[in-house]
């Protein structure tokens, strides 16, 4: 009973990695590539003054801004993820990790190499890293804490798909592999890939996704998983005997087509909690229980059906087909000028 209480108190402090920058950093961050991953603009450390005195200076500022924007394209791109706390996605609580906390950062490339990731603590606190390979990177922030006889391990995970169409599409088939790393974290959740996925895949509203929980390389049954969306919806599920939960993102976005932004990303966050009775050693002490909290955030876009129409496509296609056939027929008929009226019977 006591255990449950502590657990529920701790659950309030879900820590997760988010792609959405805090308001204060918005100007220094850009959305990079097809998957709109947050990346730093070059020279973001210098603060820019915002003139608001009169219209002239605003213009000047705008021109200046335009010149500086996108200037970092082509150079090394620093991608960032923000550390957030709490289960509200709309009202983000951006936090930082102080040095007293026991934390660990990991970034694994699609080919399984460990790559550099660092915690930057300036005015804003974020994780900074580079994505040089094509495919899914896994980023982990693991925080360990011992309370009573339980070891609490908070894993904030992000699956980041790195792809730029400008680099070509030759490794198309390698977009899919699902990687999980028991040597980094014994408990892990991965999003299952659809068979048709490629580097351009992005979840969309209405889409069904499934997530699979692992513990020590085996599927973990009955894991409590809660899904929080930007719109404020939440749903708690438990994994089945295959360690899976199925999620369908609600198609709750209805607007006129002129107002619909097909590139708008709606974020969601997934939090899983799992307690195991397994002796663990931590800082010289043994703990009979381990409580894992794993978070993972990603986004989805409006469904294609909300802004495209196959029927209209077919209508245009068929109309043009019929009109052009008729046009050719009429043209040929009208060209029956002298001597052309002599037609041969092919049979």
């Amino acid at each position: 009973m006591a255990l449950f209480l502590i657990q529920s108190i701790y659950a309030q402090e879900i820590i997760w990695l988010s792609n959405t920058p805090p308001a204060s950093m918005k100007d220094n961050v850009r959305a990079s590539g097809m998957h709109r991953l947050s990346a730093l603009k070059k020279g973001d450390t210098k603060k820019k003054k915002v003139y608001k005195t009169n219209a002239d200076s605003t213009k000047k500022f705008k021109r200046k801004k335009k010149k500086s924007s996108y200037s970092s394209y082509g150079a090394v791109t620093n991608y960032v993820q923000w550390i957030r706390k709490g289960n509200s996605i709309q009202k983000p609580a951006y936090i930082c990790i102080d040095d007293s906390t026991d934390y660990q950062l990991k970034l694994i490339s699609p080919t399984g190499n460990e790559e550099k990731i660092e915690l930057v603590k300036s005015k804003n606190c974020y994780l900074k890293f580079e994505l040089n390979e094509e495919g899914y990177y896994n980023a982990y922030l693991i925080i360990k804490k011992a309370i009573g006889d339980t070891l609490y391990i908070n894993i904030a995970k992000a699956e980041l798909l790195s792809h730029s169409c400008r680099n070509g599409h030759h490794k198309k088939l390698e977009a899919r592999p699902v990687m999980h790393y028991p040597e980094i974290t014994e408990f892990e959740i991965i999003r299952e890939r659809h068979p048709w996925e490629d580097f351009h895949y992005f979840s969309s509203s209405g889409e069904k996704e499934s997530y699979k929980a692992f513990y020590k390389d085996k599927v973990a049954e009955n894991v409590k998983i809660t899904l929080y969306t930007e719109k404020g919806w939440s749903k708690t599920m438990h994994t089945d005997k295959n360690g899976k939960v199925n999620v369908q993102f609600l198609q709750d976005y209805f607007s006129k087509w002129q107002e619909l932004n097909k590139r708008k990303i709606h974020y969601y966050m997934l939090a899983a909690e799992y307690t195991v009775q397994d002796t663990n050693e931590y800082k010289g002490k043994t703990y009979p229980y381990v409580h894992y909290t794993l978070t993972m955030s990603d986004g989805y876009r409006p469904a294609r059906t909300m802004y495209t129409s196959m029927v209209w496509g077919l209508i245009v296609f068929l109309t043009v087909t019929i009109v052009s056939i008729a046009g050719i027929f009429i043209y040929k008929e009208r060209r029956k000028k002298p001597y052309k009226e002599l037609k041969f019977d092919e049979h």
Binding site: Y339, K340, D345
Partner: peptide, 21 residues
């Protein structure tokens, strides 16, 4: 080309046989 087409018609009339593929 037109002259030849006309010629074919004349030939067809003369021989009574139609030009076929």
């Amino acid at each position: 080309n037109r002259v030849v087409k006309k010629f074919v018609k004349k030939l067809e009339q003369t021989t009574g046989t139609k030009l076929t593929r």
